[in-house]
């Protein structure tokens, strides 16, 4: 039985007047988080994913959404086709068909002693791994930094936070855990990175989102503006007639390239700011007749 919230808008975390695009984006974000094959074994994710799918199915269908809004059907008013689950196969022994990689790598580094050649790991004693957390500033995690971590025993570790580090990522410092004793091997220090939120940057995978305030003048006539990016300020041209909500993309100005991932982009969403009252502007608007008057709310008018 799927535990469906009564309100599909709430399930997807969108407003009741959300556009189809917003709904799609919210669904995709949540689906990535809770897809059962990306969270094998998690009952919570499975239930959440079902609820998200049901909510999306309802809200992405204009007719069904209207019916729900009018109270004609409830949140569970749909028959939801059961999806064929890859997990059922992958979790069974038959899942070995897609073991590790095409080259058949195994986990001999972990399970070698038990699974691959049958002999028990003997030899040097291993010290235990120690777990720590380290809070970092948003930009340090984006562009990389070295931070000193003072351990409870008074030692201090210089932790190199690589560019592109994510919140919750765990860095391993080899040999910095508990001592393995004479002739033994030291354990590792495992450091979980907590990234503090930033005042105006938001990370979205490799991309960074930013809301950029612009003046009425800049939005209407266009012009050069300075946009903050993690790597410093960049000048960019705002095209004329750029409304609130217009998105500008600065290619390669998001999270820098790291590992196999290419650099992300910076997405600036414009927000027109009127600023302080301006008598001249008010005077002008009073005497102004638009060339082609339009009602921006025409799409909201009801027919009844």
């Amino acid at each position: 039985m799927v535990d469906i919230l009564d309100d599909p808008y709430q399930t997807l975390g969108v407003a009741r007047d959300a556009s189809a695009k917003d709904i799609r984006a919210a669904y995709r974000k949540l689906a990535k988080q809770h897809h059962p094959d990306l969270n094998p074994g998690s009952k919570t994710s499975e239930e959440r994913f079902k609820a998200i799918s049901v909510a999306n199915e309802l809200l992405s269908d204009v007719e069904k959404r209207a019916k729900f809004d009018r109270g004609e059907i409830d949140a569970a008013g749909q028959e939801h086709a059961p999806r064929p689950s890859y997990r059922e196969y992958a979790d069974a022994e038959g899942g070995r068909r897609y073991t590790g990689s095409a080259r058949g790598e195994s986990f001999s580094d972990i399970f070698g002693g038990m699974f691959d050649d049958g002999h028990h790991p003997s030899g040097p004693r291993h010290g235990r791994d120690e777990h720590y957390t380290l809070a970092t500033e948003f930009l340090d995690a984006i562009i990389g930094a070295t931070r000193r971590l003072v351990l409870p025993d008074g030692r201090s570790l210089d932790v190199k936070i690589p560019a592109g580090t994510r919140d919750g990522q765990i860095l391993r410092l080899r040999g910095q855990g508990q001592s393995g004793g004479p002739g033994g091997i030291n354990g590792d220090a495992l450091i979980e990175i907590h990234v503090r939120p930033h005042g105006f940057f938001q990370r979205n995978g490799q991309d960074i989102d930013l809301e950029l305030p612009v003046t009425l003048h800049e939005a209407t006539l266009g012009g050069m503006v300075e946009i903050p990016t993690p790597a410093g300020t960049v000048r960019m041209r705002v095209p004329p007639q750029s409304d609130s909500g217009t998105k500008l993309r600065l290619r390669g100005r998001g999270v820098p390239a790291h590992g196999a991932l290419p650099a992300g982009d910076l997405h600036a969403t414009l927000r027109v700011v009127l600023g302080k009252p301006d008598p001249a502007l008010e005077e002008f608007l009073r005497g102004w007749t638009p060339e082609s008057p339009a009602n921006p709310r025409s799409a909201m008018e009801t027919k009844s």
Binding site: R28, E93, G100, S101, F111
Partner: peptide, 25 residues
């Protein structure tokens, strides 16, 4: 559905396969 393009798919599939492999073991 999730817009994981074919550039990223091998990364996702490989990690997924490794998780399932670990779970079986």
């Amino acid at each position: 559905e999730l817009h994981i393009d074919e550039e990223m798919l091998p990364v996702v599939l490989s990690l997924m396969d490794q998780v399932y492999d670990l779970r079986r073991r």
